[in-house]
Nucleic acid binder design. Structure first.
Lengths: 168, 168
DNA sequence: ATATATTTTCAATAATTATTGAAAATTCGA
DNA sequence: TCGAATTTTCAATAATTATTGAAAATATAT
């Protein structure tokens, strides 16, 4: 397979992959494009390669910057802005985990705390079923939260070695 | 907070949560409703409680069954079908991990294998950047695959205890 | 300061995805 | 076997989400 075709496939399936994880297709595609590009790119480069509009490109670059996955690069003597993606996949994963933890897991755990305190007699099976479910989700969620925290702090090599040892 | 309100909140935020993870709102809400219900429910019960149509209810129940999260229950002397959700959250998580691994991670790893074999001189920086990215994603993906496999096989108590020890 | 290049915004529109509801199919009791 | 209850399907429609493109804002060179 030629490089051009391989890139196309990578970008397109990274985009499809993204949509299964609540990330919009274009954002994932821009990210994929930058991941496999040796040099920083301008918005115009991306527009051309992905066949998308200027507005779309701009909005999704901004979003990738918000996620901490892409950053602006200043090239001396150039008027235009250039962008580049973090290439260290371990860092990319950690960054995504960090953001999703903050945006989704933590608010969910807070809600569950509130819901656990529901009024009513625990001997009522409706109350009991509700509280039991909430408590068990919370328990698992808290453990996930801690584990992810640790992972965010870990070095890739240490993490992989640990996993390898335990789950061999 | 009253039980009814707490249930509403739980169902609605579980639905919103789902949409961030590529799961449609209704499917997540039905799942939430069943999770907190002490007894099996009929389609009509769900339609009423969630204010959704018969077709929508039916399609999403089927989908939950495909995911292995809900099952049909036969109540003797009843004509209608009843449904119930797995209440053990650890089993629920394992089931979701298992399915997503099969549906998404494994196909992605297969694709990456194919893409790694791209033609071209590795001294060309474009080829090199592409292959490097593909290889590093693959490496991490394979480790994730193994780790998740292990997790799927593990008992909750063992898994949590292990995590606790290591990542304390 | 002005002209020009570049980025950003956002209302309009398109594309995608979810939902409805009624008809068809199926199940099951009598 | 028939008929009512129940489930399933799916074309039509609604709701949501993504994308465009042109105007406005901003930045920079001269």
């Amino acid at each position: 397979m030629k490089l051009t075709e391989a890139k196309q496939q990578f970008i397109s399936s990274w985009g499809a992959f993204g949509t299964h994880w609540g990330i919009n297709r274009t954002m994932a595609q821009i990210h994929a494009l930058l991941l496999v590009s040796p040099d920083p790119m301008t918005q115009d480069d991306m527009m051309e390669q992905l066949n998308i509009s200027r507005g779309n490109t701009n909005m999704n670059i901004r979003e990738l910057i918000n996620w901490g996955l892409v950053e602006r690069v200043l090239l001396s003597g150039e008027r235009k802005e250039y962008f580049t993606a973090e290439k260290d996949i371990w860092k990319v994963v950690k960054q995504i985990v960090k953001e999703r933890k903050k945006r989704e897991l933590e608010p969910m755990l807070q809600l569950l705390d509130k819901l656990e305190a529901v009024e009513g007699d625990k001997r009522d099976k409706h109350v009991k079923a509700f509280v039991d479910t909430v408590v068990s989700i919370k328990k698992l969620g808290r453990q996930a939260d801690k584990t992810l925290d640790m992972m965010i702090r870990a070095e890739e090599s240490w993490f992989l070695a640990t996993m390898m040892k335990f789950f061999k």
